[in-house]
Design a protein around this nucleic acid. Sequence first.
RNA 1: CGCGGGGUAGAGCAGUGGCAGCUCGUCAGGCUCAUAACCUGAAGGACGUUGGUUCGAAUCCAACCCCCGCAA
Length: 320
Amino acid sequence: MRDLRKEPIQTLFLGTDWESREILNALYNDKRFKITGVITNEDKLIGRKQILTPSKVKEFALKHNIEVFHTNSDTEKYKEALERFNPELIVCIAFGEILPDFFINYPKYKSINIHFSILPKYRGAVPVQKAILDGEKETGISIMIMSQEMDKGDILKIFKEPILPNDTNISLRERLVKVSCKVLGNVLEEWVEGKIVPQKQDDSLATYCWQKDISKENAQILWESMEPEYIERMIRAFIPWPVAWCMWKDKRLKIFEAQLVKKENNEKAGTLFISNSQLFIATKEKNVCLSVNTLQIEGKNAMNYKEFINGFGKDIKEGV
RNA sequence: CGCGGGGUAGAGCAGUGGCAGCUCGUCAGGCUCAUAACCUGAAGGACGUUGGUUCGAAUCCAACCCCCGCAA
């Protein structure tokens, strides 16, 4: 049997953001794999000032002298990449492009992808956010063989992870990345050594999530109609983008952190009020309020409820 | 030149031509069984930068820097 520690697998890595970078870092430091190159997006214009910024994966690769390649969804470029790197294995994490069939099936050990859900549930672009928004109790990572159809490939292994009551899209994602880094190398080794039999997904149980589910429009809090529990989940799911928001005195108010509390009140849903030096927003339920910790008003930096009360308190009615 | 809001004490804000203010925090003291509560006192500011108008500018004018929301 091949000893991966003496003869590492020639691996081509595809990815873009910080999650990809963390996982790339784990593989890079794993003697069983030799990262021969990375494919990532072209530098993009980012932020209000539109600064040309390289992807996190590209930054990492340049720093560690790994060859960087751009494909730009161009079939010819994919052919070129295979000739250039001749990979035994492709690992793809959060890479934006649709990959051609010949490309993903080329390597001896196929193309492997990690998806942040328990497949076949939450196939698609925003599984972590949607799982929180739906109030799911657990999610996980699915390591699978890539197929032409999105997130439909055969499963090598699934690792479950509980969704905690105060988990945000960021905190949960960080744990999922951590788990991924920890287990991916071992799963890949078992796979290469033929110890894993890939399992087909049961398509009849599949659910999907789309980028448009997590949009600015869907991040608007409708106090009159939405259930308090749903509002609280929105706040956790829409971090760091687009951030749950509502209007207050003709300004946009973003809510970064808040909890539901039991509190009798007579305020109209969506009204801000202060009680016991705490900031609350009334929901449509008379005995449930949102206790706000961190918020941001249009034109200002984010601030905690105390700072908000210091400056804006006189504009808010003292309640209950 | 995409649209708009803003920069004043450590923090959040008020102050639109005439002594630099409020709330919170900090420090000292007091009260209290005790406290994130309350009382007394104190420290802490080139009012984003540069230039202009004026007897006098945080305030009016010009340019620039920085932060934020929207749009992309």
